[in-house]
Amino acid sequence: MSANDFWTDIQNSEWHSVGGSTVRNKQFNPFPDDDWREGLVRDNENYYPPSGVHIKIKCQEETRGEYAVDHHGKPERVPATKLRTFRLEISGDDFLGKEVLSTARFLVVGDHAISSPLTLSSTKSVVVLVRLHTASDGKQVMVNELIWSVQYDKTPGSTKTFYDIQKWFCCRYP
């Protein structure tokens, strides 16, 4: 899929969640029940949209003019770029990630888009990667890949971090 296809397909589109996410599937949380990592994955469930959530894509295109940067003492011209971005207008049932996903801005990069970093708490953040998948019946599905980072050791200065990737998806509306 070319960049244009993704941008064309995502523009002005509307989606509805059926509550599908890998975090609700035990297969994607393979830790035993008494493992602290199992709890970390489970705790994130409320950040995923339940069924009954409606999402409109609100696109914005900005042109960044040509400019020059110094490269080993010589000006290097950087061509003008179109920044293709969108945000999600979310309505319907509430869920914990609604507020933060509504404030995120997604930048289109080729056949996918990536969100601005979303800080959920002092120890927890997430980045969302958006792709479009065409199902066997020809209908499009929006697949959102959440890349989690949780600092689990609260000792100041500690960098011990737990990473996880889970997906949720929406069906194209109508």
Binding site: D94, E99, L120
Partner: peptide, 12 residues
């Protein structure tokens, strides 16, 4: 203004 705050806490 709640922009820039961590995720606000919701009840289950």
């Amino acid at each position: 203004n709640t922009l820039g705050l961590p995720t606000r806490n919701k009840a289950s």
